[in-house]
């Protein structure tokens, strides 16, 4: 897949494969094009060139109505949780059910309670999103993402900005959902430690390019200096700190 924004290459001919029933983590620094890649995979943005396959269908050429049928098999947890401010927790989680099913209120209530129990937040149904902490928002967002029992769940930086305990809770939920319900999971992250904990497969992005992929062990023992620099988080190494190729002295001396 390839995608550019005003000449900036955000996805540089990336090919990726998310295996059924596995947790795949897309790792990369800020601005390395992780979110862009994920938005193309789920069809929120069209790639400039390239295709997306889900089962035996190609998603980029589908009509809106057809794409929506596939979306019902996907859940997504957004970086900012993206809960609706105007609805309380219960209605937020029930939203997809109310839109797509004709289930009775009683059934909806039971299903919402089950998901809340799963994310460990039963009892907050009546609160508004503005009354919740960051970690709770993520968990409610996750409850909403899985209310339709999706086959694939996408997570955009599920643990960034959270305290270590909340982050650990989210990591555990991702693993549990994967192991208990067999949900295929795609996680975008820059949190190295948690990625190695939850991943079956890791892909590393660097300025829109895929520079490595493999099992956590393979990545750990990779000889690529860029990969080593990234997983150790050292400022010195082959990954430049600045984005431009221009030499610093040239840049300040020659206007």
């Amino acid at each position: 897949m390839r995608k550019t924004y005003n000449g900036l290459v955000a996805s540089d001919d990336v090919t990726c494969r998310f295996r059924k029933g596995k947790v795949t983590v897309i790792l990369g620094g800020s601005g390395s094009g992780k979110s862009t890649l994920m938005r193309q995979v789920v069809g929120l943005e069209k790639p400039d060139s390239g295709t997306v396959h889900f089962g035996d269908r190609e998603l980029t050429s589908l009509s809106r109505a057809e794409l929506y049928e596939y979306r019902k098999k996907m859940g997504m947890l957004f970086q900012a949780s993206a809960l609706f401010n105007s609805l309380d927790v219960f209605e937020n989680i029930a939203f997809p059910l109310r839109e797509h099913t004709k289930l009775a209120d009683q059934v909806i209530r039971t299903m919402v309670k089950m998901k809340l129990e799963l994310v460990g937040l039963r009892g907050v149904e009546g609160l508004m999103p503005s009354q919740l902490s960051g970690g709770m928002l993520k968990r409610i967002g996750l409850a909403r993402a899985i209310i339709m029992d999706p086959e694939v769940v996408f997570y955009d930086e599920p643990t960034s900005g959270l305290d270590p305990i909340s982050a650990g809770v989210i990591d555990k939920l991702i693993v549990d959902l994967n192991e208990i319900l067999g949900v295929t999971s795609v996680v975008v992250s820059h949190d190295i430690e948690s990625s190695f904990k939850i991943a079956d497969w890791i892909m590393i992005l660097f300025f829109g390019k895929k520079i490595a992929e493999g099992t956590p062990e393979e990545i750990q023992s990779s000889e690529d200096p860029r990969v080593q620099q990234f997983i150790k988080g050292s400022p010195e190494g082959p990954i430049p700190f600045t984005r431009t190729d221009k030499d610093f002295y040239e840049d300040i001396l020659i206007p």
Partner: peptide
């Protein structure tokens, strides 16, 4: 604000126009 906080994308992902 719905756009900034990705609520519009969330609607899309929940197959709601």
């Amino acid at each position: 604000i719905m756009k900034i906080t990705e609520q519009i994308n969330a609607l899309e992902m929940m197959a709601v126009n």
